[in-house]
Write a protein that binds this DNA or RNA. Sequence first.
DNA 1: GAGAGCATGACAGTTACTGACATCAAACGT
DNA 2: ACGTTTGATGTCAGTAACTGTCATGCTCTC
Lengths: 181, 181
Amino acid sequence: MPDAQGRMIRAAMELFAERGFEQTTAVDIAERAGVTERTFFRHFADKREVLFDGSATMVHTVHEAILAAPGDLSPLEAALTGIVAAGDLLEERRDHAVRRSRIIAANPSLQERELLKLAAMVDTTAEALRKRGAPEPAADLAAHSAVTVFHVAFASWISEQAQPSFAECVAQTTAALRKLM
Amino acid sequence: MPDAQGRMIRAAMELFAERGFEQTTAVDIAERAGVTERTFFRHFADKREVLFDGSATMVHTVHEAILAAPGDLSPLEAALTGIVAAGDLLEERRDHAVRRSRIIAANPSLQERELLKLAAMVDTTAEALRKRGAPEPAADLAAHSAVTVFHVAFASWISEQAQPSFAECVAQTTAALRKLM
DNA sequence: GAGAGCATGACAGTTACTGACATCAAACGT
DNA sequence: ACGTTTGATGTCAGTAACTGTCATGCTCTC
């Protein structure tokens, strides 16, 4: 049976949405996907990780986009270029992103994992900025700020009925942030 | 035997430092503290929580300090007032804070929990700013930025051999952040 | 000094996760 | 065509994080 991993991801999303994360056992997911519990844990380090499959790709995209950005951009501008590139990935599957974020919002232990992934995005962003020559603590602070923008822009992107593009949300959020300082 | 909770916290910090978080079982901690495993889990929701006892106090301090700050401060300035107040709590037990942060840095699952507590600090800060009349998304962004400053300032506070005060670290980090924008 | 209330112990049960070994099928070299 | 090797999966036993329930003992009060 092909694409066991994809089947497990879909099964997990369905079950988490139907009855919640805590009420779903690893065995439940494995059964619905037609595999054994052991196979589930071979593909995912833990039960939560099944929702975070794409996160490595996103972090990688951010990294590449920052290194490819024009050299004369400020650290913050370069970091935001990476954020917009990450947003493009979400844009391709808006519906999936919305359902996933609802599931995560409903469970603190999933929120923890999401925060860890965002922290990885901060680290990667800061590293890319340093490669471009940004000094500390500017690299670190710009990375944190960019991921904050990502976080807040994402929330408005999925909540608006107007359905603006992710890049627009980033632009608006960035403007608001600049105004604060 | 008095102060069971304190004994468990101390036992856990010792054991985590000696052999690491994963290599320490809840039974180990309970035994060293002279209680049973069940008692441990009555005091702490999970094994990680034993390291995050003071976090509610800190969040509460931030909230109070923001509400007590002069009304004419900008949202970001008010939020930073809260951060400095939280720093004062750390200042009282610098040694403990350093040991604790080393333990957390050594384990990803503890980092997750730390990030969740910082996220709670963001939420509380944003709420306090809203009570002061800050609109969205300013309240949210200022809260995120203030906690970023806390995070980065904390790192420099514990790494510097010069041992500056926490408030100085916050001031320097804030200045660097403003320069970025 | 009986009883209410609270912290703890004792114990059984579920579930997340891991290690070790067996199986099976596709891919590969000869 | 055939033995081999490799990768994915199944099976099974085990550890440890938690949870529910009931029993026990201690303190405080009337």
